[in-house]
Amino acid sequence: MSPSTAKKRYLTNTAISMGVYLAAVFGASYVIKNFEFAAVVKYILAVLPALCVWWFLWGAYRFYQETDEFERSRLITGMLIGILVILVVTSGYGFLELLADAPHISLFWVFPLFCAAGGLGRYFTKIDGEKC
């Protein structure tokens, strides 16, 4: 598979998985708040957005395998920046919660923050195309 085809597939997978993720987050919270379910059903509904996270990450892993070495390096750099930001922010805020009574923030925010930081990392490793 050519790198451009792999990139198209990765971007399509990212757009679809993130769209379904948002729908699952809002859909599951609406349904759980407004209807009565057995605990097991609530667990299944609540876990649906996490499946979309897996779907997105699987697409990223497939892109890693299918693309060329430079795009692979950009992907890894973006993810590394995402991981660094997540570790710094979550461990820092964890200590604030533990020692300084800062208000609790849900772990739900870890993935959106990872995506934002990773996206920023990819943006900064972008090469502006010069005209031939």
């Binding site: 050519s2 790198p3 693309t67 060329d68 070495e69 430079f70 195309g129 010069e130």
Partner: peptide
């Protein structure tokens, strides 16, 4: 079998190929 971005990155010296 690499992307145009890869060629640009090598030409501009921002990426050293394997």
């Amino acid at each position: 079998d690499v992307s145009r971005q890869t060629i640009i990155a090598i030409e501009t010296g921002r990426y050293d190929p394997s």
